[in-house]
Design a protein around this nucleic acid. Structure first.
Length: 573
RNA sequence: GCGCCCGUAGUUCAAUUGGAUAGAAUGCCAGACUACGAAUCUGGAGGUUGGAAGUUCGACUCUUUCCGGGCGCACCA
């Protein structure tokens, strides 16, 4: 039930009739006119800018054309009690209340889901943090963003696969394994942990070392090379356990975990390289020294390069390191070939701000591999700044004392982390305020929306009444302004969903929820000022019935929004 | 030097992707409970949307250019 789409279809049909009768002309593409609830009430219940879109081909001013359409439209539809032509060329429709009552009755458990959407197969890759330790706060944002985006896309009817790419190949992992090894030696043989910039000094490395010793599933030997492979495997498992536990605490469960090692071991890199070679996108050459950025130990190097500049990248990119192993990028090319082979309609990558520079080469390789056929969109999440008591907290991983995701989740709770992380556009930097989020008041938007849900539940606890036959309810008792406003806000939910899903902008969802909750709180308080406006009204069962029906629908929407956010909808607080 | 992101009320951010009078929250000021849960609500003040030019019926939104902030810039992942 989407009144905007329904009404648009209705208008399109009507415009076609007018064209047939030679009353107006329609442009080639004419379905891009808007149908929306105006921000200002004096502009009516629903408005369209169609006259402005059609004005040119009709050689008329938008206002004149609007007047012509208005004349034809007058008295054609039952629900319209008035049509106004407004300044630049809008048509504003004023409906009788039955229009809104009928709409409200038509909402059901599937409300908000698109019934005319062609389902897409979508792969969304997010988090993909290196398995060298627990998640930090920066990861949380991308994690929550990707997860809610996935929920959103699947709610509207798509088939969504959530994937995590494990970067378990290359030097960083080796350094990490070495760090764990030194920690083990430290515990067993009291050998001091070496000072080395490349190693991971963090406390959690000690925990992992202890864990490994406790499980006793490894023969610790002085010969590092001998145990390296086994130790590496165990270290990655330990790290992934940490990460998965953090993710679980955030309410995130991926469908797939794809390992970089696996990609390499299946010779997918060679396969991808062959494809690129056949298309002549690979050559041997020397990259120029980067300008402006001082690199001390720069030296010319002959390497296998990919012509990403052909696809809009700033520079061609190396595929092989001088030691003969693949670069991270080469493996990523292979991984994306693997993604392409799995035949998705859309690939979505969620990246952190520090990887934004990587985006162009990624899209370049997908374009090259798929002949521009594979659709892929990357979403970049900007940085998160943590504030506590007005001070910004530093998050330095090097120092080893960085604030982990689990610190954050333990302190403020999953619901608040999820809500606040998605409450801003991913393109903007985010200030995360500990004090605000632990505060149980109006200032905290999470509690504000949850409180609305709890209040509704409390009403249904209080009354013995149950809605039996929805069709028989007389909604004309909902004639207060706030009640109509709420119905209109409910009507906007499918539109919010549609926009959020289409533009991959999930931050709209909590904003919408806040607005709906706010209207409900207003509604509630009108009953504080005037007893006749209380929702529960035993003396007038029919009025009470209509009002309970309305808040039941509010509850339905709040619940389904919170489900998408994966934030709990409490019955009591 | 190059690339990406951002610049909107004192502050943190929205704005149905080019629509009408730019909205919330917070902070400030003034109010509402012997309670359908005040963890709430009502009202007020607060803006040349960083500056300039351009595109058109119409610009916070698109283009160009400058100014400011963030992130990243040969084999790391």
């Amino acid at each position: 039930m989407n009144i905007f789409i329904n009404y648009k279809v209705k208008l399109v049909d009507f415009f076609k009739l007018l064209e047939k009768d030679k009353i107006i002309k329609l442009p080639e593409k004419f379905d891009n006119f808007s149908v929306e609830i105006p921000k200002i009430k004096t502009h009516g219940d629903l408005s369209t800018n169609a006259p402005m879109i059609f004005a040119k081909v009709n050689n008329l001013s938008p206002v004149d054309l609007a007047a012509i359409i208005k004349k034809e439209l007058d008295n054609k539809f039952d629900e319209i009690i008035k049509i106004e032509v407004a300044k630049p060329g809008f048509l504003n429709f004023f409906f009788n209340k039955d229009f809104w009552y009928d709409f409200l009755k038509a909402t059901d458990i599937n409300f908000g889901k698109s019934d005319n959407l062609v389902p897409k197969k979508i792969l969304i890759e997010y988090v993909s943090a290196n398995p060298t330790g627990p998640l930090h706060v920066g990861h949380c944002r991308g994690a929550v963003f990707g997860d809610i985006l996935a929920n959103l896309l699947s709610f509207v009817g798509n088939k969504v696969v959530k994937e995590y790419y494990i970067n378990d190949y290359g030097n960083q992992i080796n350094q990490f394994v070495k760090s764990v090894y030194f920690r083990i030696l430290e515990i067993n043989n009291k050998v001091l942990f070496p000072v080395d910039q490349d190693l991971y000094p963090g406390e959690y490395v000690i925990d992992i070392a202890k864990n490994i010793l406790k499980k006793n599933n490894l023969n610790i030997s002085d010969n590092y090379d001998l145990i390296f492979n086994d130790l590496k495997k165990i270290c990655i498992e330990e790290s992934m356990d940490l990460i998965k536990s953090d993710l679980k605490n955030l309410g995130i469960i991926h469908n797939n975990f794809v390992s970089e090692n696996y990609i390499v071991s299946q010779n997918l890199v060679e396969k991808a390289l062959d494809i690129l070679k056949k298309k002549n996108y690979v050559y041997e050459g020397i990259l120029e020294r980067p300008k402006g950025n001082e690199v001390d130990d720069w030296e010319p190097r002959k390497q296998i390069l990919f012509q990403s500049t052909k696809f809009g990248d700033d520079s061609d990119r190396a595929l092989k390191k001088s030691d003969g192993t693949w670069t991270y990028f080469a493996n990523d090319v292979a991984y994306h070939l693997n993604k392409i082979d799995r035949k998705f309609d859309l690939l979505i990558n969620v990246l952190g701000a520090d990887h934004a520079g990587y985006l162009k080469r990624q899209t370049s390789c997908v374009s090259a591999l798929s002949e521009n056929k594979q659709q892929m969109i990357s979403k970049v999440c900007q940085l998160v700044k943590l504030f506590k008591s007005g001070n910004q907290l530093k998050m330095s991983k090097r120092a080893g004392d960085f604030i982990t995701a689990s610190d954050l989740i333990n302190e403020v709770g999953k619901d608040s982390v999820r809500f606040m992380m998605i409450y801003r556009s991913n393109d903007s930097q985010l200030d995360f305020d500990f004090d605000l989020v632990t505060d149980h008041s109006k200032e905290n938007p999470v509690f504000y929306v949850q409180y609305a849900h709890a209040r509704i539940c409390s009403l249904f606890r209080k009354t013995k009444y149950e809605i039996n036959n929805e069709k028989k309810i007389n909604l004309s008792f909902l004639n207060h302004e706030i009640e109509i406003d709420i119905i209109k806000k409910i009507a906007e939910w499918p539109k919010c969903l549609e926009l959020s899903a289409y533009h991959l902008e999930p931050h709209r969802v909590p904003f919408y929820l806040y607005e709906l909750a706010s209207l409900f709180h207003t509604y509630w308080n009108t009953g504080n000022e005037n007893d006749n406006l209380k929702i529960l009204n035993e003396n007038h069962p029919e009025i009470q019935e209509a009002r309970l029906f309305l808040i039941k629908k509010i509850q339905l929407v709040i619940k389904s929004v919170l489900d998408i956010l994966n934030v709990t909808a409490p019955a009591e607080m």
